[in-house]
Simulated assay, not measured.
Amino acid sequence: MTQPPKNPLHGITLEKLLNELVAHYGWEGLAKRIDIRCFKSDPSIKSSLTFLRKTPWAREKVEALFVQMRQKQE
């Protein structure tokens, strides 16, 4: 029996994901990669989490960038 594909986001909270991205790219680097205001104008984890939880398209972009970053680290 084959295993289903492993979900790279399993067990990772949005806050942990965002903290890792900020540590890796910085706010300016995130803003260059994903053009959303919460990364450009007075960025904070709290305000970004609020926005990302309410905005599915932005969350998908952030999650995709996180998966891409993790794959490059392997």
Rank of each mutant, 00 (worst) to 15 (best):
M1D: 02
M1H: 03
T2Q: 02
P4S: 07
P4G: 03
P4E: 03
P4D: 02
P5L: 00
K6C: 12
P8A: 06
L9I: 07
L9M: 09
L9T: 04
L9D: 05
L9H: 05
H10A: 13
H10N: 11
G11N: 13
G11E: 14
G11W: 14
T13N: 09
T13Y: 12
T13P: 11
L14R: 11
L14E: 10
E15A: 12
K16L: 12
K16W: 05
L17I: 13
L17S: 08
L17H: 03
L18Y: 06
L18D: 04
L18S: 06
L18F: 10
N19M: 12
E20H: 15
L21F: 11
V22L: 15
A23R: 13
H24N: 15
H24W: 15
H24R: 15
H24A: 15
Y25A: 05
Y25T: 03
Y25E: 13
G26K: 04
G26W: 15
E28T: 01
E28P: 00
G29F: 06
G29Q: 08
L30G: 03
A31V: 14
A31R: 06
A31N: 11
K32E: 11
K32Q: 10
K32C: 13
K32A: 14
R33K: 03
R33T: 00
I34Q: 00
I34A: 01
D35C: 00
D35Q: 00
I36L: 02
I36T: 03
R37P: 11
R37W: 00
C38W: 10
C38D: 11
C38K: 03
S41P: 06
S41D: 09
D42H: 09
P43T: 03
P43V: 01
P43F: 02
P43K: 02
P43Y: 04
I45L: 14
I45W: 04
K46D: 05
K46E: 07
S47C: 10
S47I: 10
S48N: 08
S48A: 14
S48I: 08
L49H: 10
L49W: 04
L49F: 05
T50S: 15
T50N: 15
T50A: 14
F51N: 02
F51W: 08
F51I: 14
R53G: 01
R53P: 00
R53I: 03
R53S: 03
K54C: 10
K54R: 15
K54G: 10
T55L: 12
T55D: 13
T55F: 05
T55K: 05
P56S: 13
W57R: 13
A58F: 04
A58Q: 03
A58M: 08
E60Y: 09
E60P: 04
E60D: 08
K61H: 03
K61S: 02
V62L: 03
E63D: 07
L65F: 08
L65W: 01
L65Q: 01
L65T: 01
V67S: 06
Q68R: 12
Q68D: 02
M69A: 11
M69L: 12
M69V: 07
R70D: 04
R70F: 12
Q71A: 15
Q71Y: 13
K72L: 15
K72E: 15
Q73S: 14
Q73P: 14
E74I: 07
